[in-house]
Simulated assay, not measured.
Amino acid sequence: MTGSDPKADLQVYLQDARDALLWKLDGLPEYDIRRPLTPTGTNLLGLVKHLAGAEALYFGAAFGRPFPGTPLWITGDAEPDADLWARADETREDITGRYRQACARADETIAALPLDAVGRVPGAPAGTTLHRVLTHMVAETQRHAGHADIVRELIDGAVGQRPDGLNVAPRDPAHLDRVERAAREAAARGN
């Protein structure tokens, strides 16, 4: 039996979510990666931009290791939700490049510090550890990768955690019909 390495385990899940998020942009035109697809404005490139800032804040500034060149769109005099959408003058390459840079620098912080290293995360309790930050970022990135999955499905039907689609059941129109019938029956019964 082999031992477990909690830091390595968390990094695997974080990297898996990072990769899933980025592939959601693959093959799509500029308009589709930017357009709002929910009433709150959720869009693919905005999710990447948001997570670039989160990686920079949580793994950089919080541990006294600020990331040069990676802006924190959620601080200073930025307009509300500036981190959740891309301006016309911000390119896909700029935002995804900054995300990759923030992830690489985050990985350096994770490698350099023990899980019990304490950081200062705005709005979090004093004494927040790297372990807690790493756990939070796995959850945060997976959450937004899930948002990206739904948004991408609305754009062109592509779904899943990986481009090969092997982790998704094949589309079955009969299944969709069963779900719809069950929803209507439940509503008619007053459930």
Rank of each mutant, 00 (worst) to 15 (best):
M1L: 08
M1S: 14
T2I: 06
T2Y: 06
T2K: 10
D5W: 00
D5S: 04
P6K: 06
K7H: 04
A8T: 11
D9M: 11
Q11N: 11
Y13F: 14
Y13H: 13
Y13D: 06
Q15I: 00
D16Y: 15
R18A: 06
L21P: 04
W23S: 03
L28F: 02
P29W: 00
P29F: 01
R34E: 00
P36A: 15
T42A: 12
T42S: 11
L44F: 00
L44P: 00
L45W: 00
G46I: 01
G46T: 07
V48P: 02
V48R: 04
V48H: 04
V48T: 13
K49H: 05
A52R: 09
G53P: 08
L57F: 01
Y58E: 04
Y58N: 13
F59P: 12
G60F: 02
P66V: 06
T70Q: 08
L72G: 10
T75R: 13
D77Q: 14
A78F: 09
A78T: 11
P80K: 09
D81K: 14
D83C: 07
L84E: 08
R87V: 07
A88S: 14
A88I: 02
T91N: 09
I95Q: 03
G97E: 06
G97W: 06
Q101T: 15
Q101M: 07
Q101R: 12
A102E: 06
A102N: 06
C103H: 10
A104T: 12
D107Q: 11
D107I: 01
I110M: 05
L113S: 02
L113N: 05
L115Y: 07
D116M: 05
A117E: 06
A117W: 04
V118P: 05
G119R: 04
R120I: 10
R120K: 12
P122Y: 03
A126N: 06
T129P: 01
V133G: 03
L134Q: 11
H136D: 03
A139K: 14
A145P: 10
A145W: 10
H147I: 05
A148M: 12
A148T: 07
I150F: 12
I150T: 12
V151M: 09
R152F: 10
E153G: 11
E153W: 06
E153Y: 10
D156M: 13
V159I: 15
G160P: 01
R162H: 11
V168P: 09
R171A: 13
A174H: 04
H175E: 09
D177E: 14
D177A: 15
V179W: 01
E180L: 13
R181T: 14
A182S: 13
A182H: 04
A182Q: 03
A182K: 04
A183E: 07
A186G: 07
A187Q: 12
G190S: 02
